[in-house]
Design a protein around this nucleic acid. Structure first.
Lengths: 243, 243
DNA sequence: TATATACGATACTGTGGAGTTCCGGATCTT
DNA sequence: AAGATCCGGAACTCCACAGTATCGTATATA
């Protein structure tokens, strides 16, 4: 169940101007052309339904109705429910976490706190609910699992890794820190909270993770302000290049 | 879908000797009696199928066949698929993590490492796969969500919390440590790894969590306990016990 | 022995949803 | 204009599965 996604990714099939000489002959283009401006609406509707009902609870009719489209329209664009879902999950990626317009406050704690934004939290919760809804498929569909990971988990972990590496370069924390694990902790703990405990993520929880886990594990003791108040039990031996 | 579980928990309905005077009249007990020694087999079969196929992929026939039982037998004992699943999830709890026969090596690191057992890892992975298979239901069934949490997450977090508290009482780590978050980190990270990354849990990963996250966050530099230390990128100044 | 229930096995019923087809109308090419 | 394809909408087919009923057999009470 659920095989390969290709729609949305191969403009040659849709664009009349492009023709692959060695490809299967795309004979002509006659009649009314497909309105691709509707694709995002349909995919967004699919994401909404996925978040609410999960994969098995979602029906094509639900998606079509919510997108104010006909069922046949959906099947004209995606060959099956599974492929529609794969595209829907993949299109969740966009979001906001652009590689390097991340906060740069000068301290790791400042950066981590600056990443706490209500919009980002809400967005993350919804995406996690989508993942939860199709989690039973992930074990049997490595492709979907990878798509989900890249869309939801990967961007957040990458952002944290970036901030941690910069803190190392800045000399704020030791290079011997376990960057890989530390950059995953917040996402893992937030996932646990949403998926298993049915709680929501709030600012207080995220700050408790920063001050109670990440910063101490990085060798920093949390200060009250934005600045680093390094006061570990053992004196830090690393080169303290205060920015 | 999926309502209340009561089977297995009310011996009065099954035991001929017990009769509730104000209850519904249990008239008599005639004919062949139900063989309750089969219950565990059926529930175990249900857990197996759940782990492999998820809730929606699981059929009653699969469970009956695997348990070498008849479909009617299952419906004689559980009124619906949903209630069977609730009981199956609840019966995963037993396991091994008895409250206080946990390791006591004298050091936090020793205790945490002593908790790493192949059997426990394998058991945890299977249970997580079960949870993954019915995760889309958890959002709509708080009862099932709580049952799952109590069966899978709660015991492990509680065990870690116990070890951390003992380390505080022992004076090994500071009472100001964020015990609640730290006792959840390992389970959260392991869940992330299995559910999102389709990786397995191994000893190396768990030790890297202990030495890279938990102990540093608790204010301990790794190497004070027994056993090998996870290899950090930078030269460790601690006693290098090359295994 | 007569009666009643549990057992595994199998056949049956009912329903919900994936996927298909057809419709009247709109939009494109030639 | 003619023909082809799109659109939203609705009716349709097909099938898998939850749940029920039945059968021959086994095990219980009275």
């Amino acid at each position: 169940m659920v095989s390969v996604a290709k729609t949305q990714l191969d403009p040659a099939v849709e664009n009349p101007a492009v023709e692959n000489p060695a490809e299967e002959t795309e004979p002509v283009k006659l009649g009314r052309r497909r309105d691709h401006t509707r694709d995002p609406d349909i995919l967004a509707a699919a994401v909404d339904v996925l978040a609410e009902c999960g994969y098995d609870g979602m029906t094509i009719d639900m998606v079509a109705t919510r997108a104010k489209a006909g069922k046949a329209t959906l099947y004209r664009r995606w060959p099956s429910k599974g492929e529609l879902v794969i595209d829907a999950v993949a299109c969740m990626k966009n979001a906001d976490l652009n590689l390097s317009q991340l906060p740069d406050t000068g301290t790791l704690r400042g950066d981590l706190i600056a990443m706490i934004k209500p919009h980002s939290i809400e967005d993350g919760e919804k995406k996690l609910r989508v993942i939860a809804g199709l989690m039973s498929l992930l074990a049997h569909s490595p492709e979907l699992a990878e798509t989900a990971r890249v869309s939801v988990v990967e961007p957040r972990v990458t952002a944290h890794r970036f901030l941690l590496r910069r803190a190392v370069e800045r000399g704020e924390i030791s290079p011997s820190c376990d960057i890989d694990n530390l950059s995953t902790v917040t996402t893992a703990m937030a996932s646990m909270r949403i998926l298993f405990e049915s709680k929501t993520i709030d600012r207080e929880f995220l700050i408790s993770l920063i001050d109670g886990v990440i910063l101490p594990a990085a060798g920093l003791s949390p200060g009250t302000g934005t600045g680093p108040v390094a006061e570990p039990p053992a004196p830090a031996e690393t080169a303290v290049t205060a920015r």
